[in-house]
């Protein structure tokens, strides 16, 4: 491993005036966002702030009402789906499947999937490949999904709530797995509201509030400027919103 880390300033994702409405409900409202390669980015916001909507738009699972997304210079479509590795906020596999079935499935499906790496990750995370999903604990299931997602050599990793519902020790394990396995030309976006747990692995934080980006900055720049942790700032930003009663 070379000592000098790759730190390009090459743009990977550009969102322009991105808006998504579900009927009369506006989930995302005019989001402009740029993500660079080699970064780990926290997508932070309370429930219902639009985190999952943004991630699903980047995956191409839903279509924007207005605005544009470009990933690696291309509009979202089959070509960008090959670049994106997505960890959904809920499990979408049949529960009779074994971990090894899923490794086979991903190996067939994604050309950038590294089967050997996945097997090694299973071993270090204590996942038994022959175990069926239905007999696994919630934490183990999350680990299996994480292995599938991180064993791809993708450009953009979108992890929707990867640490929710696992104990603190497993959480450390999962964060460590993300740190040791992401490729340095790729960008990892992690959505969560458990900020204090992930703050130190992030390069950048994005605060999403009622469908809009209210802050996007380097984590240490935030600490320097505000004199407080991102977690403390988050509590402040979103507490104020509560007391205003949402009447803008």
């Amino acid at each position: 491993m070379s000592e000098q880390l790759i730190r390009t300033d090459e743009l990977l994702v550009t969102c322009t005036a991105l808006t998504k409405r579900y009927g009369s409900k506006t989930a995302l409202n005019g989001v402009n966002l740029q993500l660079k390669r080699g970064r780990i980015v926290g997508l932070l916001g309370p429930n219902g702030s639009g985190k999952t909507t943004l991630i699903k738009l980047l995956c191409g699972l839903i279509q924007p009402t207005e605005g544009d997304i470009a990933i690696g210079g291309m509009p979202v479509g089959p070509a960008t789906k090959a670049l994106v590795s997505y960890l959904p906020d809920r499990m979408y596999f049949a529960d009779w499947m074994k971990a090894s079935d899923l490794l086979d499935l991903f190996n067939d499906f994604y050309s950038d999937f590294d089967r050997n790496k996945a097997t090694a990750m299973c071993q270090s995370l204590g996942v038994v490949p022959s175990q069926r999903l239905k007999t696994m604990s919630k934490g183990t299931k999350e680990k299996v999904q994480l292995v599938l997602v991180m064993a791809r050599k993708a450009s953009l990793y979108l992890l929707d709530e990867p640490i929710a519902g696992v104990d603190p020790a497993a959480r450390d394990y999962i964060l460590n797995t993300i740190l040791t396995n992401y490729n340095e030309e790729g960008c990892v976006m992690i959505s969560t509201h458990l900020i204090s747990d992930i703050e130190q692995v992030l390069d950048e934080a994005i605060f999403l509030k009622e469908g809009q980006v209210v802050l996007h900055d380097n984590v240490d720049a935030i600490r320097e400027r505000e004199g407080k942790s991102v977690d403390a700032l988050f509590r402040e930003v979103f507490r104020t919103a509560g007391m205003e009663g949402g009447a803008f």
Binding site: M1, L5, R39, D172, N176, L179, V201, D203, D220
Partner: peptide, 19 residues
């Protein structure tokens, strides 16, 4: 130790350790 190794040990982002 290498930046990457130290970063993993400390559980921090490699770019932060680099800085």
């Amino acid at each position: 130790p290498a930046v990457r190794d130290l970063a993993v040990q400390a559980g921090v982002n490699p770019n932060t350790m680099q800085r």
